[in-house]
Design a protein around this nucleic acid. Structure first.
Length: 468
RNA sequence: GCGCGUGUGCCGGAGAGGUCAAACGGUCCGGCCUGCAAAGCCGGAAUUCGGUGGUUCGAAUCCACCCGCGCGCUCCA
């Protein structure tokens, strides 16, 4: 069974076919850098990283690009209102460029903290104004766009396939009755490629006068520059399907006369406590908020990965601590394998390992069924623990575990380092135990535990680890 | 309002016609192990899959309607 993914374009699963054998060109819709990213943003980004890592597990070379949107979109309507970046800039009393660089840095820092694989590029929209203008000129030359004053609009009527991705076709859009008739637009569905607004702070020169690019054009320009005119995979949150991705398809295909992207994958939204996350209901959580509660990056990563990406996920603190426990269990297992205490030969675990690998891969091949894949991992852990692996068995189990973890990237535990005082307490406890002074050893264990150091007595002696 | 999706135990969450008295993780209870713990292992905790009808020899899985929630039609991952 080949790898298959659900394609938003066809609403069905289909085998992965890449333009170039063994290479996947993947573009992920990234953040607009105007504030602290919330956990919903990172659900989508974690999904992209998981996808990339599994493709690499399967031997593909993945050329991954995730944009950074640093030109604000408008707060209200597509054609009026305030730019989000500029609004934030005003709140923070900075200029929009400072805002963009600041939050970009935070975004990249979180990626690193969560153990994301490095993308080929994180291009900024503002660094690609020239490329955007070039595409707009092509669209004008081909008759897919028109100029009204200092604005340029894309003519949706010139692209009959418009609406194929989202199912929002023609009349359906107007039936929404939320599209205000726009004096400049020939068709209410038309969208801006270049806008003129003297109030806007971020502006560039263009053949149509000073202005700034429309929302959708940056992704068409940057994906093409870094990955070529046709992409293998394009991802984003479900809210990107319309209008953003629909418009990207229209622009790119009209400009290049080639299919834009073969496979569209969209992550569903994440709810918090069963409700849509929003500032007004008070359940809005940034990634920093979660870390501040003591959740480790691995646990957050696990929590955000462990629900299938096309399944709406409900984030709760209880689920978060379950994720923390799960991740600790993985780390403990790994630690045990690195220093095996058992005697079982390789043959005793071989069939469990083979079964786990088979189950893991067939689950992940099927549109990244992470729940089932993790089920296979935990089943393997139980089987191996039960066997009590000796050195050879443990080495094989460790190798497979690390291979699985190259996808999830949550199994590594930082080495446990202790302060001099902690070490003294640990040494004292060893001595107390040797003297069978149980009262004293239990007391010391209590003291250490209160300080976050967990102590356990194993057959080969005392072992300490730091609570995470 | 229109379109799309979704609803499984105490919690998270797989399963998408029989092999399901429902994987896996968490939690709780009991046991083994341990000086006691911890870790690990074993066993128990849904007679049932939002509700009501229907299709079928057979439904958590298919269909209809209803209810809840989410997404799109408007900035949002």
């Amino acid at each position: 069974m080949p790898i298959q993914f659900h394609n938003t374009l066809t609403k069905s699963k289909q085998p992965l076919e890449t333009l170039e054998k063994g290479v996947v060109r993947m573009y992920n819709c990234g953040p607009t850098v105007y504030s602290y990213p919330h956990i919903g943003n990172f659900r989508s980004f974690t999904f992209a990283d998981l996808l990339r890592r599994y493709l690499e597990y399967r031997g593909y070379e993945v050329r991954q690009v995730m944009n950074v949107t640093d030109v604000g979109h408008l707060v209200h309507d597509a054609d009026e209102g305030e730019d989000k970046l500029e609004a934030q800039a005003r709140r923070e009393k900075k200029d929009p460029w400072q805002i963009a660089r600041h939050y970009e840095e935070i975004f990249l820092g979180i990626r690193e903290k969560l153990g994301f694989a490095k993308a080929l590029a994180h291009p900024r929209a503002t660094d690609h104004i020239g490329e955007m203008i070039a595409i707009i000129e092509t669209l004008l030359a081909k008759g897919n766009a028109y100029v009204v004053g200092s604005n340029v609009y894309f003519s949706v009527a010139s692209f009959p396939a418009y609406g194929r991705l989202s199912g929002n076709v023609g009349d359906g859009l107007e039936a929404g009755a939320r599209i205000e008739p726009h004096p400049d637009k020939k068709d209410p569905r038309d969208f801006a490629l270049w806008k003129h607004d003297p109030q806007h702070i971020m502006q560039w020169d263009s053949p149509w006068g000073r202005g700034f690019p429309g929302w959708h054009i940056e992704c068409s320009a940057m994906s093409q520059k870094y990955l070529g005119e046709t992409l293998d995979i394009h991802t984003g949150g479900e809210d990107n399907i319309f209008p953003h991705h629909e418009c990207e398809i229209a622009q790119s295909e009209c400009a290049n006369g080639k299919p834009f992207c073969r496979l569209w994958m969209h992550a569903r939204f994440l709810l918090v406590d069963g409700q849509k996350m929003s500032k007004s209901t008070g359940n809005f959580l940034t990634v920093e908020d979660v870390f501040r509660k003591g959740v480790t990056p691995q646990a957050l990563r696990y929590a955000l990965s462990s629900t299938h990406y096309r399944q709406q996920q409900n984030f709760t603190w209880e689920a978060c601590s379950a994720a923390q426990q799960a991740v600790d269990r993985l780390a403990e297992y790994r630690r045990g394998l690195a220093d095996p205490a058992g005697t079982a030969p390789l043959s005793a675990v071989k069939s469990a390992l083979d079964a786990a690998q088979k189950a893991f891969e067939s689950a992940m091949d099927d549109d990244l069924n992470v729940s089932e894949a993790l089920g296979a991992v935990f089943t393997m852990i139980r089987d191996v623990n039960k066997a009590g692996p000796g050195p050879a068995a443990a080495a094989a189990a460790l190798e497979l575990f690390d291979r699985f973890d190259s996808v999830f990237n949550v199994g590594a535990a930082p080495p446990d380092v202790f302060t001099a005082e902690e070490q003294a307490l640990l040494d004292a406890r060893v001595a107390a135990r040797a003297a069978k002074n149980w009262a004293e050893s239990d007391r010391l264990r209590g003291v250490l535990e209160a300080g976050g150091v967990l102590v356990e007595d194993r057959a080969r002696g005392q072992r300490a680890r730091r609570r995470r």
